[in-house]
């Protein structure tokens, strides 16, 4: 990969809608780290779009954060994203895997991409998380801080 003008900063993209209760999880999570400007570039999305495929090529590491309908044991799931074509998608709503696939195919770039999916339970019009989502959010943040410490250590020793 060529030298990137974004340096070693990580791109964090929060996906969701803060007007729809737990759908705010993605935005709230990235906002939690917005003061770490040397480490992260932060973006907010209602939904991923095709131009995000170009955006992620400017980074070595990208983290998508979204609320999830699924139930995970710890209230969240953090996993490495692999590129994938999704036939059923519409172009006004892409999955992280699809965005990565387009970045690979169109721009020959393969950033390291992770997905943080945090469980929510309510998606109706409402400002603020449910108690369940708030608890899951805190667990996800706590886990991510640990992951980040390890990553920062890995960077500093490379």
């Amino acid at each position: 990969m060529n030298e990137l003008k974004t340096g070693s900063r990580i791109l964090m993209i929060g996906i969701g809608n803060n007007g729809r209760s737990d759908d705010a999880l993605g935005w709230k999570f990235v906002d939690e780290f917005s003061n770490l400007e040397d480490l992260f570039d932060i973006e907010h999305r209602y939904q991923l779009q095709i131009e995000d495929a170009l955006l992620i090529t400017e980074y070595k590491k990208v983290i998508f954060v979204d609320a999830s309908h699924k139930e995970y044991e710890n209230g969240f799931s953090f996993y490495k994203c692999t590129p994938a074509r999704t036939e059923a998608f519409t172009t006004h709503k892409l999955e992280p895997e699809t965005v990565l696939w387009l970045a690979n195919d169109l721009f020959n770039q393969s950033p390291e991409v992770y997905v943080m999916a945090i469980c929510g339970v309510n998606w109706e019009l409402h400002q603020g998380l449910t108690d369940t989502a708030q608890k899951n959010f805190e667990s996800a943040v706590s886990f991510f801080m640990g992951w980040l410490n390890k990553e920062t250590f890995r960077f500093s020793t490379q």
Binding site: Q49, I50, E51, A53, L54, R85, E87, F89, T91, W101, L102, D105, L106, F107
Partner: peptide, 25 residues
């Protein structure tokens, strides 16, 4: 159906797909 999506455009017409992204951007 497997042809009627942006993946097929990206695979067979890369330049068209790239320009589309850059124009939208």
């Amino acid at each position: 159906v497997e042809k009627r999506n942006v993946f097929a455009v990206a695979i067979e017409n890369k330049e068209l797909a790239k320009k589309g992204i850059l124009m939208r951007k």
